[in-house]
Write a protein that binds this DNA or RNA. Structure first.
Lengths: 243, 243
DNA sequence: ACGGATTTGTCCGTATGTATC
DNA sequence: TGATACATACGGACAAATCCG
């Protein structure tokens, strides 16, 4: 109905105002270790509803400028130009595509070697880790990250190549960067979690059955599905059941 | 004002998760009779909450790497020191088999991406490096190592993935360890050098022709031939026909 | 044998983000 | 829009277990 919406609330620009003020606040908040003011405080400071604040933060989180954690606070993301980059010369500055390419390069091979070399104890450990992963609440993101990472690392460990395990750890350390939490969370939904759980199950069964090619293939499928989920959340706002 | 916690932002280092740092700590803690630092000390050392420490310890306990007892402490597991092999610290604990497996995992994919992404300048650089390599005297081993490494690195660079390039450099640093010079020299003879030269030539032509699958396949053949050469020199004494 | 010290295990209050009404 | 319940995180405090003097 293109008729003039008319008589919209005179404070028509409030939403824009909240987002604008948030952007300014982020600019003046270079400390990435200190949380931004709480939503309830921002609500009062900008004199808008909390929903407004959260909408604006949703935008900023989608843009990668901030990341939020329940119980902890909202933090500025990779906004600041100065990244310490202190510890190692390894490219800490990477991006999700590079990480997924690297994972696709080594983890299928890791699964293959694990199918050839894993001891029964290591296979049992994978099963236990998977049980822990499956009994988690679907919205328990941090825990899922933790146990999922532990599962993949158990495979890398069982592959019996310390050098490849070191490479896996290097990738994993970059993969878990907090600034990508928003993308990772967006790429997770119940349907996908079920699919990933199925992948995990099939991977470990192939490893237990000593089927290296199949283990590598399913691992590759798993990572490709993950990569696709990241891509779709970045490009599409709508949820296409691609793949 | 949110109650400031800690106020120790100088030693930031939040990039590495507590679990990752715990793994390194365990690796450097071979004494099974002595407890690990207390949770509250680890909390301060890693600048994370005790909850995160305990969840990381949950994972490590499930993996069997540590065991905890109330009032006593946390100890490294009975299965002893496993095998992380961190990148930054220690290259020399690896072996040739591990290195070749890692190269086989990484470099074919690198060649594939190089075929897709290499700029004309990068391809020209590869050709120049190969020319230098081919004009060398067969007994100029150090030079051969040098230019061969540079050629492979040019491919890794052209792949356009900084993370994978970092992994390649990590492997390459280990590969060029002087302690393996004897094996590498023994695995080199004129016939093999000719074969490797042919491999190199086909790899770069596939990259220039934008044939990713073929480039990856030849790279894989090349590395498999290398691996085979190492194996035969290790098993047979008659292979030493050089000089 | 006793008690203080230390460590892991557990719980509670507060603060924060998340979700629903 | 505003308000309320819910889940999580952190720090503090306490309990239980162990160690040591």
């Amino acid at each position: 109905m293109p008729t003039n919406a008319g008589t919209a609330p005179s404070s028509n620009g409030t939403s824009n105002s909240a987002l604008e003020q948030l952007r300014q606040l982020i600019q003046q908040h270079p400390d990435q270790t200190q949380p931004l003011p709480a939503e309830r405080e921002l609500m009062q400071r900008f004199d808008v509803g909390r929903r407004e604040i959260r909408r604006a933060l949703d935008v900023l989180e989608e843009e990668g400028r901030v990341w939020r954690k329940q119980g902890k606070g909202t933090f500025t993301g990779p906004n600041g130009p100065a990244q310490p980059l202190s510890l190692q010369a390894l490219p800490k500055q990477s991006n999700l595509q590079e990480v997924m390419e690297a994972r696709l390069q080594i983890e299928p091979g890791l699964a293959k070697y694990a199918a050839l070399r894993a001891t029964p104890e290591q296979i049992q450990l994978m099963r236990r880790l998977l049980d822990r992963l499956n009994t988690l609440s679907p919205d328990d993101r941090d825990q899922i990250e933790l146990w999922d990472s532990a599962f993949h690392r158990a495979i890398a460990d069982a592959a019996g190549n310390r050098l490849l395990l070191g490479l896996f750890d290097a990738i994993d350390a970059i993969r878990r960067d907090p600034s990508w939490q928003a993308v990772r969370n967006a790429a997770r939904n119940q349907e996908r979690l079920n699919r990933y759980g199925d992948h995990h199950h099939r991977i470990i069964e192939h490893i237990a059955a000593r089927q290296p090619k199949e283990a590598a293939r399913v691992m590759r499928e798993h990572l490709l599905a993950l990569q696709q989920a990241f891509l779709s959340t970045l490009n599409d706002d709508e949820e296409f059941t691609d793949d």
